[in-house]
Design a protein around this nucleic acid. Sequence first.
RNA 1: GGGCCCGUAGCUCAGCAUGGAUAGAGUGCCUGCCUUCUAAGCAGGUGGUCGUGGGAUCGAAGCCCACCGGGCCCGCCA
Length: 649
Amino acid sequence: MIRELSRMTIRRAIDEARALLDEAISHNYGLKDIAYDVAEPKEEQYGDLYSNLAFQLSKVLRKSPSMIAEEVCSICRDIMPKYRMIKEIEPHRAGYINFRLDMHELTRITLEEVKSKGKAYGSIDIGKGRRVLVEHTSVNPNKALHIGHVRNLVLGDTIYRLLRFTNHNVIVLNYIDDSGLQVADIVVGFRFLNFPIESSKKFDHYCGDDVYVKVNEMYEHDPSLLERRREVLKAMEDYNSDIARFARDITSRVLNEQLRTCWRLDARYDCLNFESQIIASRLWDRALSLLKASDIVRVDDDPSSKYHGCLVVKAGIEGEEKVLVRSDGTATYIAKDIPYAMWKLGILEDPFKYVRYAEQPDGTVLWATSLHDGGASLHVNGADMAITVIDVRQSRLQNIIMKILSMFSNDNGRYRHLAYEVVALSSSTARLFNIEIGDRRFAHMKGREGIYINADDMLDRLHSKAYEEVKARNPEADEQWLHRTAESIAIAAMRYSMLKQDLDKIITFDLEDALNLQGESGQYIQYAYARASRILERASSLVAVVVGGEVDIDTSSTHLLCREEMALIKAIARFDLIVEDTAKSLSPKTIARYCYSLAMIFNEFYEKIPVLHEQDTNLVKARLSLVKAFTITMSNCMSLLGIDVLERM
RNA sequence: GGGCCCGUAGCUCAGCAUGGAUAGAGUGCCUGCCUUCUAAGCAGGUGGUCGUGGGAUCGAAGCCCACCGGGCCCGCCA
């Protein structure tokens, strides 16, 4: 899809302001290529845009910023008329140059842009169609997702939505470690400790909450069980062994339950990559021969070295080495990640065929790798960029992988680790698990000890809370609608709480806080949208202002000059700048917080400005146009966050 | 011991990349606002030596250095 850069927004005004300033300083001081900013000020008293140009010039011109600001402004006033969007320019004694925009013009071009682009409003062509692989979720298939995994999934899925919106060709992968230690743990439970296979619980919950936790407890009392685990792990390496088949059977049952949770959270994937198949495909052997041909790995032949007989890689940090192949010839954990990463970037040829694994709720097919000849040949790997979403504790290993890949790919930075901090429990929530944490502010979750909040459980709690609230407001509504709405609210609450925070901050999860449906949250965003929808819905019956039953944007509706109206127009008009910023920084909180602020600005408008109760019919039409433009922008933004729009709640 | 990250209001966090105007939200607590488009809302009040000290700068929450407090990583585990 070809999209042109969306320009008819506040971006246009910024461009004009820059052109005006450039012309002025070139004309008056003969200066070019001065670095300065034009942006929106944080307070409205300083106008619609400001520039720090005078501060930057003061170093060059050796004059005070406020003097320069005055000079620049007076020159600008002479050449201003040809810049249509700039209405006033004014120096501030602090040294800023402040602009007032022609709000009629900004309103007109913004409404035109929203109307003509519709669902694509805010989309800009950053990706130029480049292929990007995004890997996220990748939960060991021996347990259910907890809220920590949810942060991973929500971040990855939002990155996917954002990149797709900015014209990247995105493929989403979910890596299934079906041959690792954690799977071996539950196999030990089933095969040697007589845990029943069937349970009344959801199977992933049963494996994680009961089998996995209890087996780990038993290791402490009976260390000989660790020997059993080693045997299981070894047996699973043989793809056709009885244990390997059994493990695949168990893990696929867990995986299917996990996927239900993922889909419930509105995530989707293009392909499942099974670790057992990466090993069985002999991708590792090919990676190994590539590595051996380079000089970053070597076999340690010093008998006095602790790594004697191992294949080691220089890990980047001075003197630090990492074992890839043990002296007994087996590959380590990190070694398994290298061929996979090489496969992603197309450094290794694709050994896989692909089979349809499932049809997903959004109607797309979920594929899975296959080693059988019967599968389809698809173009999955070989991307321009590969983004791997894994928490920050894996940074060191991810850096090693990146360093190794840079040896085989001339274009650095194609492999990107999207690191994020973990989710921890607040002190009061930790107390619910009887954890003593003294005066510390949070406690880490621990899978093996059963200390975590399951994603499904949390969503269920949010669902019931939301159900009560929706039911109270819509006593006559039918059950199906009530539950559907409550579910949307639960997902919105969950997703927003995982997105709003900076990637490198631990999320301190507090159960009580999470269930409080007030303030900065997903449902606040949905509520603003629902309020706007109700205005449009009621308007459609007002024949005097709406023709054809549906509100349309009237781009001549430019007489909106109340403070709350202008604030809303400007908020709508800055959407594409936020999209660009977020896509470039891969930091979803930026767009999440924008969405919240857009909702907040609408709520202020809603409280103070009558739309349907306004007497002046022209004003009603104009405000309806604005409300309509808001719902389109909001809907586009919410869909990037994976938050459902609700017409009523 | 080495590396990475965090420290801003009682609590949870924006702002820091690219220094600049009176440091902002949410929550908590207090006070108002539903005969008017949904009060899951809005308005107001309360609340901050921006961890500490130094440095460069006309100017620092932001940049540099040191220190203090907290978290994570550093295995022939995964």
